[in-house]
Computed example of a mutant assay.
Amino acid sequence: MDVIQVKDYVDYLGVKIPSISKFWELGDSTALRVRKDGTFFRSNYERGILLYALVAKHRPQNVLEFGTGRGYGSLCMAWAMSDFGIDGTIHTIDMVSSYEAIRWPIIRDGSDPSVQYLSRMEVWDDVGELQWINRINSLKGLSGSVMKSFDLDKIDFAFIDGGHGYRSVLHDFIITLMNSGERIGILFDDYSAEDWGIGTQKLVAKYVLPYLEAKLVQTDRRWVGGEKENIREDGVGMVWVETGDSDEWLVNIESKFSFVPFLTGYRIWENYYRIRLKLSKTIRGFISFIRKAL
């Protein structure tokens, strides 16, 4: 698999991108992270530049994103659609509602970084353009249950950044192909031999590279001036792959294992996971109530 630095690949795509400082500013509001020691860092803001450039280049009509998070990727893709006059929609899936307040590291209006409790829509209304937000269709739920009832136009671009375990990545990949048009481009986040990326690495090795050429784009803090600009890690990055014959790709993969039992089993696992989450939330609420009462 070819390995390329993010700036080199964006240059290769040949599209004009906005000022890098604008991506950093948007990232400070929607992608900032905090370490265990309390220090803040800009975590892979470069993915937004890459997504913007890929959308501008390939001009997709229907984008499917697994893992909205705080929305940096969604906003960057919608930004590209707006700038290049692309009449498209980004369907983005997350188990957290756009109106639910979550723990949110942020730098706002030049202030010092802090951790607040904010919702996506609260922040998006503040930092996003209306023409961006209007291009985003937020879908709440786990990917299996959401995609079971997905009945929209064929997908021609996907960003897979949801669950990072192998089973979750495989589900999101297979269900993308099952809902894609003839031509599809897929960007996988978090390709690595570390625990957080080994699911993607395993999938790419089994079901991408045997059939198609792919590129490993090294992104995280590797733009000009980034702390990792000159560090080469051939096994870490984001993987881009595209095909003009998704049906053939799907047939080749289905010859290796049966989709129906896998998808059924995955949805059963999701139901179990959903019950665990509700139970955990109930227990935390009960403990909090008891502490306040004592």
Rank of each mutant, 00 (worst) to 15 (best):
E129C: 02
D153H: 13
K140P: 00
R135K: 15
F150W: 03
D153T: 10
K140N: 06
Q131H: 11
R135N: 01
M147F: 14
I155D: 04
D153Q: 14
L130A: 15
N134L: 13
W132L: 05
V146P: 02
S149V: 13
S149I: 08
I155F: 07
R135H: 04
K154N: 09
M147C: 12
K148Q: 14
F157D: 10
V146E: 09
D153G: 12
E129K: 06
N137H: 13
L139W: 08
S145V: 03
N134I: 04
S138I: 12
L130G: 11
D156K: 03
S145I: 06
L139Y: 01
G144D: 00
N137Q: 12
S143P: 06
S145L: 11
I155S: 08
I136L: 12
M147E: 12
E129I: 05
Q131D: 15
L130D: 15
I133K: 15
F150N: 04
L139P: 05
G141Q: 06
S145Y: 09
G144N: 10
N134M: 09
G141E: 07
N137P: 00
F157W: 06
I155G: 07
E129D: 10
G128R: 00
N134K: 13
K148V: 01
W132K: 07
M147H: 05
K154R: 14
R135L: 09
S149M: 07
S149N: 13
S149E: 15
K140M: 09
D156E: 07
G141C: 09
D151A: 11
G141I: 10
S138G: 01
F157A: 08
D156S: 07
K140C: 13
F157C: 08
K140D: 03
S145N: 12
L142S: 02
L139K: 00
S143K: 02
N137L: 04
D156V: 06
D151K: 03
D151R: 02
G128N: 00
N134D: 15
K140E: 10
E129P: 01
G144Q: 05
K140A: 06
R135V: 07
G141V: 05
L152D: 03
I136D: 04
V146M: 08
G144E: 00
D151I: 01
L139G: 02
D156R: 01
L139Q: 08
G144W: 09
S145D: 15
L130S: 15
L152F: 05
L139A: 07
F150R: 00
D156N: 15
D153E: 11
I155R: 10
N134P: 00
F150K: 00
L139H: 05
S138C: 08
L142M: 07
S138M: 05
F150T: 03
I136V: 15
D153A: 13
Q131A: 12
W132E: 12
I133F: 10
I136K: 02
I133E: 06
L142P: 01
F157H: 13
D156C: 09
F157R: 05
S138D: 00
S138E: 04
L142D: 03
G128F: 02
N137K: 11
L142Q: 03
K154D: 09
L130Q: 14
I155H: 07
K154F: 08
N134V: 04
L139C: 08
K140F: 03
I136S: 04
S145F: 13
L152V: 01
I155M: 04
Q131C: 11
S145R: 03
F157K: 04
I136M: 11
M147W: 10
D153L: 09
S143R: 01
N134Q: 14
D156P: 01
I136C: 13
